[in-house]
């Protein structure tokens, strides 16, 4: 079985977002970088499927040179190979992103054979476009389903579950297929030290993608939502605050 996972590098913003002076990006000078938790789970799912069924896995991203870090993170937990479509780090719209990824998939498949499964996140953490995986699947003429919390592969068919208020919808789709996963599908492992060392030594296949125009939406400016800072009432320090807390619970009708 061959599996491809797509991940996107995003800043780990912590308690507050600070915008860069141009107002068009986040000030990332003091931030670490990660991928969306959904994509971390996609990586874990790929590693588990290959462990169970044999085969090989590839992780790919479109992003700046530094996105190599996120590719190495994926290799550290067991992905075999990594592909970087290197950009100048500017914001690509979903159509341009999906088109470049599709071209790269075609190239990889021509060289090494088709992927049975392409795993993506349900949505990227930063731009949250909810569409790159679907655009890729449609361009490759493969079935796709998103929002998946459980996945099983048997006899060339994927069975995938999506949470709904009443329980889980169960989807079936024949391979090759694209599946968008959500955090909670598994609990990702932490990388081992040997895993990290191995990943550090691996080569990353890098190329420069073509950026198609005509997509959108076209970003003009980022803004922080207006938050009225709550006025916090300190009810006390330590366990002595308990009676006052319970008084408040009564006042607001919780008790």
């Amino acid at each position: 079985m061959r599996i491809l996972v797509l991940v996107k590098r995003v800043p780990a913003t912590g308690g507050r977002i600070v915008l860069a002076d141009d107002g068009r990006s986040i000030d990332t000078r003091f931030l670490g970088f990660v991928v969306s938790p959904h994509e971390e789970c996609a990586v874990e799912e790929a590693v588990r499927l290959i462990e169970a069924n044999g085969g090989d896995s590839v992780v790919m991203t479109l992003g700046p040179a530094e996105a190599a870090d996120q590719l190495r993170d994926a290799m550290a937990v067991g992905i075999d190979r990594a592909v970087l479509l290197e950009t100048d780090g500017s914001d690509w719209d979903p159509l341009a992103t999906a088109t470049a990824l599709t071209e790269a998939v075609r190239r990889l498949e021509a060289a090494d054979g088709p992927f049975d499964l392409i795993l993506v996140g349900n949505e990227s953490a930063d731009s949250g476009g909810y569409q790159v995986g679907i655009r890729l699947a449609v361009a490759l003429d493969r079935p796709v389903v998103t929002g998946i919390k459980a996945l099983e592969i048997r006899d060339g068919v994927a069975t995938a579950r999506r949470q709904v208020s009443a329980g889980f919808d169960i989807f079936e789709l024949p391979l090759p297929a694209v599946v968008g996963v959500r955090e909670g599908i598994n609990l990702p492992r932490y990388p081992s030290v040997p895993g990290r060392l191995r990943a550090k030594k691996k080569e990353i296949e890098t190329s420069s993608p073509e950026r198609v125009a005509g997509g959108g939406p076209t970003l003009e400016r980022l803004r922080l939502p207006v938050e009225h800072e709550a006025h916090v009432e300190v009810l006390g320090n330590g366990p002595e605050a308990a009676p006052r807390v319970v008084e408040v619970l009564r006042e607001i009708g919780v008790l």
Binding site: G14, G15, R16, E227, E229, A230, V232, E233, V234, L235, G236, N237, G238, P239, E240, A241, A242, P243, V245, V246, V248, L249, L255
Partner: peptide
């Protein structure tokens, strides 16, 4: 940072504060 969003706050160790609230309830 969560204090910026808080209506009420107790400053203290959960290990002591939570059981005290439970007992008071």
């Amino acid at each position: 940072p969560i204090f910026k969003r808080a209506t009420y706050a107790v400053i203290g160790d959960v290990q002591a504060v939570v059981p005290a609230i439970t007992a008071e309830v």
